[in-house]
Amino acid sequence: MLHKRISQFLIIYFLGLGLLLAIKYCFGLSDYVIPGFTDIKNTAAAVAAGYLRAVLDTLGVAVIGHLLAIALATVVAIVGRPDNLLGTMIKTAAYNLQAYPIVAVAPIIFILLGDGLPSRLLIAAIICYFPLLLSFIGILGEPVASIEHFYVMTGRMRWQLEVKIRAFENMHKLITVVTGSATLAMVGTIVAEFIGADSGIGYSLRIALYQSDMAKVLVALFLIGVFNSLYLVALELLGLVIQKRMGVEQRIQQ
C-alpha cells in the first residue's frame, strides 16, 4: 500500500518535472524561469531541513483539522439523519453551504483570529468538513432495511444501533470518504498558510513565490506529496484494522 502510494506520487511528480524541463530546453528558457536539474538539487540540499519542519508543521495542523472535521461531521450527520424538520434543515444547509467556495472566507478568518494556529486549523477543518458532512449524511441517513427491519419490528431500534448498522454496512464508503478528505485537509492548511499564516509549508511557498524561486517550489511540492501520501497510507491502514476488527473483511470476502 505504502509502496503503491509513494510510487504513484513519484511517477506523477517526476513526469511533471520532466515536462517542465522539456519546456525549459525546448523554448530555451532561463534558469530564472525554470531552474535546471542541478539548481533544483542544490536548492533541495539547502532548504530540505527547514522545509521538512514546515511540512511536518503543516501536516500536524492538517491532521488535527481533519480529525475535528470528522468528529463534527459525524455529530451533525447523526443529528441530521432522521427525516424530520431538523434533519431536513441540516441537509438543506449542508447542500447549500458546500456549493460555496468556502476557501473564499479564509481572509475573514484571518482578520478575526489572526495569522496563528487557530486560523490554519479552522480553515483546514472547514475545507474538508462539507464534503465529509454530505457523505456522512448520505450514508447515515440511508436505511439498511434488510437489517433494521427486525429491530424496528421488535421495538429494539435505538439511534445508536441505527448508526452502528448503517456505519458498519457502509464502512468501505466511510473509509474512502475519510481518506479522500485527508488531501482536502492538507490543501486547506496549505491555502490558509499561503494566504495569511506565518508558518508551515504554505508560508514557505508564499516566500518562494515572492522570490520567484521555482526550485524551492518544486522541493516544497515534493515534500508535500511524500507526506500527504504517508498520511493517506496511514488512514488506509487504520481503515483496514477497523474493518478487520469489526468483521467487515469476512463479509466482503463472501
Binding site: 437489517i147 452502528k164 468483521g247 467487515v248
Partner: peptide
C-alpha cells in the same frame, strides 16, 4: 398490534457478531 411480527426472506443479521 405489537404482537404481530412480519418476517421475510430478504432480511439479514448484522455482520459484526
Amino acid at each position: 398490534r405489537a404482537g404481530i411480527l412480519y418476517s421475510c426472506n430478504t432480511e439479514r443479521l448484522p455482520g459484526w457478531s
